[in-house]
Design a protein around this nucleic acid. Structure first.
Lengths: 193, 193
DNA sequence: CATGTTTGCCAACGGCTGTTGGCAACGGTT
DNA sequence: AACCGTTGCCAACAGCCGTTGGCAAACATG
C-alpha cells in the first residue's frame, strides 16, 4: 500500500516483471500459446516459474498482459485521400516489423479463443475507428475495415507465420507498391453492384 | 499381404480408419494441432486411442493424413483472362466452405512447423503452377502467386479463424465482388515501378 | 536492534499427454 | 476341427504441464 508516496516509487521487482513480459512475448510469438510454457518463459527470464504466477496470476493473465497492443494508427484525416492505402500498408509493415507482440497475437489467435477475441477487438475498435474518421457511408465502414484487415492479416500471416518464400523475399517497399492499391480500393472505392 | 487378390478388397478396418480421419479433421479444425488430443479424436470416432496409434503411427502421422489437401484449381487456360480473379475467389470460397480440411491446416500452421511446411508446399506448388499456366513473365510468377495467397489466406483467416464480424456476415457473392479485382490485379496487373 | 513486507527458490501436487504392450474376441483359411 | 492374422480394448508408463504452499534471504521501517 505505502500510502505516503505517490505509488510511483519504482519497485525492485519491476525489472523482473519486465523481463517476464519480454520473454513471454518472444515465446508466444515463436511458439504460439500452448507450446509456449511458463517454465520456458521463466527460464528465459532467469527466474522461477512460480514468480510468473505470483505476478500475473495465471498463464492466461500473462498472455493478456503480453499481448497488449496498440496499432498506433496515424491520424488519417491529415493524409491525402489518394494515398491512404500506401500510408496504411507502410505503417503496418513498420509497426510489426519492429514489434513481435502482434506476431504473438497472430499465432495465438489461431488456437486461443481469448487471443482471437482480443484480435477482433483491436481491428473492430482501432481500425474501424480510423476508417470512420474520413467518413462517407457509415453503413459501409465496418465492411471496409474488415476487408482491409483481411489483406493486412493475410500479408502478416504469409510473411511472418507461414513464411511463404515470395512473401518473405519481397522487400517492404515492393510489398507497399503492390498492396497499397488494394487497400485504397477497399477504403475509398465505390462498392460493387 | 494377401498376395492373390489385387489388394483392393475392402478391409474391415477401413471404416474405422475413415472415422478416425474424419474426427481428426474436425478436431484439428476446431482446436488446432496441440489442443486436439488423440483421446478426444478417438472418443469422437468411438474407438480406443491405441487404435489411432496402430493405424497412423503417431499424432504427427495422423495429422499428415488428415491434412492431405488438394486445392482442385480449375484449368485457368480456359477462363477468360479478365475473369481470372473472380473465378479464383469463387473457387476458393466454395472449396473450403464445404471442406474443413483447409481450416484445420490453417489453424495448425500457426503453431505446427510441419503444417506450415505443408501449407507452403500447397501454395508454392499448386497455386504457383496454376498461375504459371497463363504465362507472361516467369520471374514474376512466384510473386504473383504469393500475393494471391496473402489475400486468399487473409480472407480465410479473418472469416473462419478470427471470425471478424464484417467478414463473417458478408455473403460469399459480396466478398467475390470486392476481392476479385484484387486478385485480378495481382495476377495480370502490370508490376509497380 | 526488532518487525513486517517484499522477492525469490524449492519441492511437490494432480492432471493430462502421447505412446506402448499384452490380452481377448472375431474372421477367414485349410 | 485347428490355425493365424486382424481388430479392438484395457491398463499402464514416463514425461510434461499449470499451479500451489512453505521457507529463506533481502529489504524497509520503527
Amino acid at each position: 500500500m505505502t500510502p505516503s508516496a505517490q505509488s510511483t516509487q519504482p519497485r525492485r521487482s519491476d525489472a523482473t516483471r519486465a523481463a517476464i513480459l519480454q520473454a513471454a512475448r518472444e515465446r508466444f510469438a515463436a511458439d504460439g500459446y500452448e507450446r509456449a510454457t511458463i517454465r520456458a518463459i521463466a527460464a528465459d527470464a532467469q527466474i522461477d516459474p512460480s514468480m510468473v504466477m505470483r505476478y500475473y496470476g495465471s498463464k492466461e493473465g500473462l498472455f493478456a498482459a503480453a499481448a497488449e497492443f496498440d496499432l498506433r494508427l496515424p491520424d488519417l484525416t491529415s493524409v491525402p485521400p489518394a494515398r491512404l492505402g500506401e500510408v496504411l500498408v507502410r505503417h503496418f509493415l513498420a509497426r510489426w516489423e519492429g514489434d513481435e507482440t502482434l506476431v504473438a497475437l497472430l499465432r495465438a489467435a489461431s488456437t486461443n479463443p481469448g487471443a482471437a477475441e482480443r484480435m477482433r477487438g483491436i481491428f473492430a475498435d482501432q481500425l474501424t475507428a480510423a476508417v470512420a474518421t474520413f467518413g462517407s457511408d457509415p453503413a459501409l465502414t465496418a465492411r471496409r475495415a474488415g476487408l482491409v484487415a483481411s489483406q493486412i492479416l493475410g500479408l502478416a500471416f504469409t510473411r511472418y507465420i507461414v513464411r511463404l518464400p515470395p512473401m518473405v523475399d519481397t522487400t517492404p517497399e515492393e510489398l507497399v507498391a503492390w498492396i497499397a492499391p488494394t487497400l485504397q480500393r477497399y477504403l475509398t472505392g465505390t462498392p460493387p453492384s
